[in-house]
Computed example of a mutant assay.
Amino acid sequence: MHILLIGDLERREFREAGRTAAAWGDVVEAPDIASAQAALANAERGFDWIVLATSYPGQYTEEQIDGLRRLAPLSRVVALLGSWCEGEIRSGRPAPGVIRVYWHQWEQRVGWEAARWSRGARSTWTLPITAGEEERVLALAGDFLVPRSGRIAVCSEEFACGEWLCAACRKAGYVARWFRPADPPREAGFTAGIFDAGDQGERYDALGRFAAALRPAPVAALMGFPRVEDRQRALAAGAASLLSKPLWMEDLLWEINRLAAGPASHSRSTR
C-alpha cells in the first residue's frame, strides 16, 4: 500500500498514526496541503489512501480536498480526527465523501481495513463514497466470525454491557465470562480480557486489578471518547490497548483476535 499522511504528526493525538500506517505500507508525510500537492504531482505511483490529520474542524477546506482529488482521483481520502473534532457532525459541516476516523479508533480501524485491502478482500474503504450503512455491513458480512478458540474474561460494572461484550466474543468462537470490577477472576487460563471502564471514579485502579488478575493474558480497555491522557493512564495501569466507545464490533473483534494471537502481535500497543 502507498499512503500519504498530511498534517502535524507531532501532535500527541497523531504520533502513533505514522507508525501504524507504516506497518501496512509505504508512508509519505507532508506537513501541509502545498507539500501534499507536490508529493502527489511527483509520485511515481498513485497513493491508495490520502490521510488528513485534522486537529480542528474546518482545518482543510472542501476546495483543498477537491484539489487533492483532482491530482489523485483514485485515492481514498480519510480524515484522521483529533479530539477537537468530536462535535463536528452535530455543529459543523464535515467534508463530503471523506471517511472519518478518530485518533482513538485509528489503530484498530486501519488494522482491519488495511488487512482486507492488502489481501484483495472487499474493504469498506473501497466502497463508493455514496455507500451507506447497509453496503458497509454487507461488505463485512461474516469476515470477523471465522471460528476462533480461547477464553475471554469480560469485566464491566453493568451486566447489559458485559453481556453484549460476551455475546460478541462468543459469536467469534471464544468462550466468554463476565466479571464485576469488585470481583476479578481468580483462576488462570484466560486468553485475553476486555475491561469496560464505564464511568467509575476509580476505573484505573479497577483496571489495574483486573489486568493483574489476568496476567500474562493481555487486556483491552474500553472508554468513551478517551483523551490522550486516558490512553496513557490505561496503558500504565496494565492495559495492552485502548478502544473507544461508541464501539464498532469490527474494531472489538479485530483487537481481541490480535491480542489472542500472542505477544508478538500486541507488543506494539504498549510502546
Rank of each mutant, 00 (worst) to 15 (best):
residue 8 D to V: 04
residue 10 E to H: 15
residue 22 A to G: 12
residue 23 A to P: 05
residue 24 W to S: 14
residue 24 W to R: 11
residue 26 D to P: 00
residue 28 V to W: 01
residue 30 A to C: 08
residue 31 P to Q: 10
residue 34 A to W: 06
residue 40 L to C: 09
residue 42 N to S: 15
residue 42 N to I: 03
residue 43 A to E: 09
residue 47 F to L: 14
residue 54 T to V: 05
residue 55 S to N: 06
residue 55 S to V: 15
residue 55 S to Q: 11
residue 57 P to T: 01
residue 58 G to Q: 04
residue 61 T to K: 07
residue 68 L to C: 07
residue 68 L to K: 00
residue 69 R to E: 00
residue 75 S to A: 14
residue 77 V to A: 07
residue 77 V to H: 04
residue 80 L to A: 09
residue 85 C to G: 01
residue 88 E to D: 03
residue 92 G to K: 09
residue 92 G to P: 07
residue 93 R to D: 09
residue 95 A to D: 07
residue 95 A to F: 13
residue 98 V to E: 09
residue 99 I to M: 04
residue 101 V to H: 06
residue 102 Y to M: 15
residue 103 W to E: 00
residue 103 W to F: 04
residue 104 H to R: 08
residue 107 E to K: 04
residue 111 G to D: 09
residue 111 G to C: 05
residue 120 G to P: 13
residue 121 A to D: 10
residue 123 S to T: 12
residue 126 T to F: 11
residue 134 E to T: 12
residue 142 G to K: 01
residue 145 L to I: 11
residue 145 L to S: 15
residue 149 S to C: 13
residue 149 S to M: 08
residue 152 I to M: 05
residue 155 C to Q: 05
residue 158 E to W: 15
residue 160 A to R: 11
residue 161 C to E: 07
residue 162 G to K: 00
residue 163 E to Q: 15
residue 166 C to H: 01
residue 168 A to S: 00
residue 170 R to F: 05
residue 180 R to I: 10
residue 185 P to C: 06
residue 189 G to H: 10
residue 193 G to H: 07
residue 196 D to N: 07
residue 198 G to F: 10
residue 200 Q to H: 15
residue 200 Q to A: 14
residue 201 G to A: 09
residue 202 E to I: 12
residue 202 E to D: 15
residue 206 A to T: 03
residue 206 A to Q: 10
residue 206 A to V: 03
residue 207 L to H: 08
residue 210 F to L: 13
residue 211 A to Y: 00
residue 216 P to C: 09
residue 221 A to C: 10
residue 224 G to H: 14
residue 227 R to A: 14
residue 230 D to M: 05
residue 232 Q to M: 06
residue 234 A to S: 10
residue 234 A to V: 06
residue 236 A to S: 11
residue 238 G to Q: 09
residue 242 L to D: 02
residue 242 L to G: 03
residue 246 P to K: 03
residue 246 P to Q: 00
residue 249 M to G: 06
residue 249 M to W: 14
residue 250 E to C: 04
residue 250 E to F: 07
residue 252 L to Y: 13
residue 256 I to P: 03
residue 257 N to K: 08
residue 259 L to Y: 01
residue 259 L to E: 02
residue 261 A to S: 13
residue 263 P to V: 08
residue 266 H to C: 05
residue 267 S to L: 02
residue 268 R to L: 13
residue 269 S to N: 08
residue 270 T to N: 12
residue 271 R to F: 12
